[in-house]
């Protein structure tokens, strides 16, 4: 039986890898780098054989001509990233090994638990997986299973559904016909605005949402999260705040247990989320 050895939830802010290389960095950057180093260390110590990477496509491979709600990659190797992300963020082209057997088993296991994933045999992944990998496993040497959501292009599933999909993924992981050590790496954000009047501001976008959103995860409070994450409330907290929904899937994967670390770091940027759970029994 497979075992979850680590669950990490982290930012996928695509500007940060380039920022970290600049000679002059804004105050607060050091705190972000410290937290990232801590997560990198935790993942290294957990020694996962496979990383299930939960993130969201940003209108790259997902588009409104054929929009899945939840999708799983089934490839031996994944390419990252797209031309526009090299141009805008300076992200590197990279390759990540895949584990098709685990992809298949999770997809089939999710079917048995009432979740019908879309799947892809030709998937290119964007910054929602590339950036977390650059942060916590820059070697990119652990086979991955990408699970992508639509959490930015409405209409989207209800908040509770992300949690339920996470629970189904957890059930599928717990019943994998393998002894592999499973790590789960989830990316998303707290309140955030991109492409709206409040974008690129050097402060928390909505501190009240951020505090509540961390609290829902700490307390495993899906009822509170569902009430606080209606489309209208999320938009009011920042037009891309719905990227938080990935973390509700993470809460489902963690079976609503208490994380060993949970914060929305205020470092002079929109809040930077860091969550982790150590070995799950």
């Amino acid at each position: 039986m497979a075992e979850i050895v680590s669950i990490i939830g982290i930012t996928h802010n695509p500007f940060m890898p380039r920022l970290f290389k600049q000679p002059q960095q804004p105050p607060g950057t050091e705190k972000v780098k410290e937290r990232i180093a801590m997560m990198r260390q935790k993942l290294a110590e957990a020694k996962p054989d496979v990383l299930i990477c939960i993130g969201n496509d940003h209108l790259h491979q997902f588009f409104m001509d054929n929009m899945p709600a939840f999708m799983i990659g089934k490839m031996d190797q994944y390419d990252g990233t797209f031309y526009d992300e090299e141009r805008e963020f300076g992200l590197p082209k990279c390759k990540l090994p895949g584990d098709v057997d685990v992809s298949d088993a999770i997809m089939e296991g999710a079917f048995d638990r009432g979740v019908d994933f879309a799947y892809s045999n030709e998937l290119t992944i964007d910054h929602s997986i590339i950036v977390p990998m650059l942060f916590v496993r820059p070697e990119m040497d652990i086979p991955v299973v990408p699970i992508l959501t639509n959490c930015i292009a409405p209409p989207m599933p209800r908040a509770r559904r992300y949690f339920e999909v996470g629970k189904a993924v957890r059930g599928a992981i717990d019943n994998l016909p393998t002894n592999k050590r499973i790590g789960v790496l989830v990316s998303g954000h707290l309140s955030l605005e991109v492409g709206g009047p409040k974008q690129f501001e050097r402060h928390l976008t909505d501190p009240n949402f951020d505090a509540a959103a961390v609290g829902w995860i700490v307390n495993g409070d899906i009822a509170g999260a569902a009430e606080g994450c209606t489309p209208e409330k999320m938009i009011a907290s920042g037009n891309m705040t719905s990227g938080y929904l990935n973390f509700l899937m993470m809460m489902g994967v963690a079976n609503s247990t208490k994380p060993s670390h949970a914060e929305g770091l205020d470092a002079g940027f929109p809040a930077i989320p860091f969550f982790c759970w150590d070995r799950q029994r």
Binding site: D84, V194, G195, G196
Partner: peptide
């Protein structure tokens, strides 16, 4: 933006 283009992609496009 006013016509309802998706803001995430609209910003990337605008910058480019």
């Amino acid at each position: 933006y006013a016509l309802g283009a998706h803001p995430f992609t609209l910003w990337s496009f605008t910058e480019a």
